[in-house]
């Protein structure tokens, strides 16, 4: 697998660290309650198909990336800077 980092270009996955589902970009409200927080911390959609996840380019530009990927084929459809996704510009 190679990830096409918006800053560095296509790089081997050895350069990246996997964080998991990109739901971290959408945290519940601080006082959303225990059930919402527990769901956020532990439960996952875990789709067999397209998923959005966070990867960290620690051996490159050190940016957090949102990678849109198919878990059945490992095919990557899009790579965006997490900061841009967070600000709604990607």
């Amino acid at each position: 697998m190679r990830i096409d980092c918006p800053c560095c270009g296509a790089r081997d996955i050895r350069e990246f660290t996997y964080k998991g589902d990109a739901l971290a970009l959408d945290r519940p409200d601080p006082d959303a309650g225990d059930a919402a927080w527990s769901d956020y911390v532990h439960n996952r959609d875990n789709p067999a198909g397209i998923t959005r996840e966070l990867w960290y380019h620690d051996m490159g530009c050190t940016a957090w990336l949102v990678v849109t990927r198919d878990t059945r084929s490992h095919e990557i459809a899009a790579v965006d800077l997490a900061s841009a996704v967070k600000e709604g510009v990607a």
């Binding site: 998991g20 067999a48 996840e53 878990t71 059945r72 490992h74």
Partner: peptide, 8 residues
């Protein structure tokens, strides 16, 4: 494990 979500 390979350390990324996968059904492949």
């Amino acid at each position: 494990i390979d350390f990324y979500a996968s059904y492949a």
